[in-house]
Amino acid sequence: MIYRRLQTTSWVVLLLLLSLAVQAQRPSSARRQRRLQAIEADTLTDTRRGPYTVVVTAGGGLSYYSTHLGVPAAIEQTRLSRFGTPSSLRVMWYPDHRLRVGLETGWTTMYSYRGQVAGENTHVYVSAVPILVVFSMPLGWLTGTDRSIARRMAITAGTGLYVNHSRLDYLGTVMTNTNSLGWMAAASYTYPIGRRFRIAGELKWFDAVAVENAAFTAELQLVWRAFSW
């Protein structure tokens, strides 16, 4: 029941983000003006360069473990949790075109379960730290204005390493880490709140392939345009 309620919550968050998009107001930038000039000239080989920007994004939210999981049959009175509170940190380079590239890390709970074996309490907890190279693109770039949804929505995909952490409490505690290749895909909506700051909502799919850990996350993020040149 609680799972369904939280799924509903994530849809509400998504709808909220979309409604923010409709209300968004932001004057055009000089950069956009220049881009439009480039379009009018029907050339994409504008000899001017930049500006280039380093953008730091930090956020947190809710995660849901979204693939099969296994609880050993020996465990009785099992209590299972698929939810977690992920956090993420992303550093991106925004060059003078649509494609952006950067690195992402963070931390997310995958799942946990509790139970008993012959009267002995057990607890297993699995989490992951992604270390990913990510590519991102706003849906709109040469068209639209800062008010348009397409300019504010971006899709992001990444690949790299997941450091998967496992903790077992049963007749002692065992904490281990295992690396796994994996990927990530996300869609975000960014809303400007100042010259250098934006807030964003992002829906994201983490998949650590080798260990078959996958989570769907919804995050609220603060986006900081840290440096520009």
Partner: peptide
């Protein structure tokens, strides 16, 4: 997961006692 069924346990087999492996 090449060798064992999914149970949340990872890392070196040498980190676990026989009883832990036998149960999980």
């Amino acid at each position: 997961l090449r060798l064992i069924q999914k149970n949340g346990l990872m890392g070196p087999v040498e980190d676990y006692t026989y009883q832990q492996l036998s149960t999980f």
